[in-house]
Amino acid sequence: MERSRRRFLKILGISTLGIGTISSVDLLAMVGKGEEPAYTPEPDALVGKRWALVVDVKKLDEETTQKAIEACNRAHNIPHFEDEEEIKWIWTDEYEHVFPGQEATYLPEEIEKKPFLLLCNHCANPPCVRVCPTQATWQRADGIVMMDQHRCIGCRYCMAGCPFGARSFNWKDAMNTYWKEHEPPNPTYPVRGKGVVEKCTLCAERLAEGKIPACVEAVQDSKAIVFGDLEDPNSEVRQLLREHFAIRRKPELGTSPNVYYIV
């Protein structure tokens, strides 16, 4: 009696496992099914090998930086929280906070108080990508460090990994709080639900349509931010870097940022 009951339970267990496996295989087959329709990039999409931004700090003032930030916030429906749970893709800070460790004791006042624009550096060797356990953040062939909010489990390892504070987590449920009170400024772009990480995507959705990033476009007249392909020797960014001395944030960490600052 004792023996056969045990045997029965064992067989039951193993067969449940078996059925489970078979049905999940079925499911996989179903997902893969379909008529083999094709997916292609849009014909106008901008194509590059290593996208980069060059920020000309001399051309930045309060107004220009606000224009760039505003354009990004509107394009990506970024909620405005002023507390420690704030979400920011692009923002400003002072020299000593942007380049800690490179502070000169007696800085020219214009540099010391200047608003520096900060955003994801789209590092060539991104630690956030290295640590992500689900590939929710990864590096595209054109260098963009991309974020897939559908995949993110919200472990926030990438936030610990990023040495530039470029990542924000959705602590709050913006969809059911903030966006109930405010109209999302861009109805063609999603908002983010609670529990996922977000950050600048270098406007991947705009590049796909052949447009330059929103912040760059917003300050186009002043040329304070220039967008281009670093691997293309004739690009505007390469030309700027040839002619000016530019620095990057925390180069000693080996992440190789792709945002340059002309100071």
Partner: peptide, 19 residues
């Protein structure tokens, strides 16, 4: 601690040895 605990199995579904 997870923001999206219901997606926990993504770690197995998309195994990522560099993490």
């Amino acid at each position: 601690d997870l923001g999206k605990p219901m997606r926990m199995l993504n770690v197995i579904l998309h195994p990522t040895p560099n993490s």
